[in-house]
């Protein structure tokens, strides 16, 4: 009968594991990266060529260096921006005060939906604070998300955020495209 190998002392195993644990605790981070994702437009090659957009189709949002907000020439509080944007982007057929509407057949939804031709044009000063800019972007994103939610509920009976079907998500995104255009930078109000 072969002799048994002597047992290895595992008493310090816990210490080694603790050491590793503390090393990983110190060198790693746990924060999840969250934020507002946006797509930048490609650089404009010649500024001469202006894109013709009708006046009624544009909602002009201006933020000045004192963080005051102006929507289509009127001072507006930030708390009102979401409602204003939603009202502007909603479908108002045959109303000349609102953007034009256009029927569009969307394959993914297999039906024709009315889409608004409205564009929200966002312009800020170089002196605007970043917090204010994000607040404005956030309110505009909220307006679009709410409209997507409403469309999704009316079509499928569930919220947009709970949709799992890729086609349905794509269809809704096509029916309500996020149209926030940022103007070429320029100073619009003194420091």
């Amino acid at each position: 009968m072969a002799r048994k190998a002597p047992e290895i002392n595992a008493g310090s195993m816990a210490d080694i594991a603790f050491l590793l644990l503390i090393f990983f605790l110190v060198t790693t981070t746990m924060d999840v990266d969250t934020g507002i994702t946006r797509k930048l437009p490609p650089p404009v090659e010649d500024l001469e060529q202006e894109i013709d957009v009708k006046e009624r189709n544009v909602l002009k949002v201006l933020v000045n260096s004192r963080n005051r907000l102006m929507v289509n020439g009127k001072f507006v509080d930030i708390s009102m921006l979401k409602e204003t944007a939603k009202d502007f982007m909603a479908i108002h057929p045959d109303n000349p005060d609102y953007p034009e509407v256009q029927p569009k057949f969307i394959d993914e939804l297999n039906r024709e939906v009315m889409t608004s031709k409205g564009i929200i044009s966002l312009k800020n000063d170089r002196g605007t604070s970043y917090a204010m800019y994000i607040a404005v972007q956030n309110e505009l994103a909220a307006a679009f998300n709410e409209m997507k939610n409403e469309l999704s509920v009316s079509l499928f009976g569930i919220k947009y955020t709970q949709l799992v079907n890729e086609d349905k998500i794509k269809g809704i995104n096509k029916a309500i495209p996020v149209r926030v255009s940022e103007a070429e930078p320029e100073d619009i109000g003194g420091q």
Partner: peptide, 30 residues
């Protein structure tokens, strides 16, 4: 970006990113 920052520098960064062909950006926020 720190929330106290003025937008001027952020706009400059965005313009450079556009020129460099990096179009997908994310404004990190809590």
């Amino acid at each position: 970006v720190d929330s106290e920052t003025r937008m001027g520098i952020v706009t400059d960064i965005k313009q450079e990113l556009r020129k460099a062909g990096a179009f997908k950006i994310n404004y990190s926020s809590r």
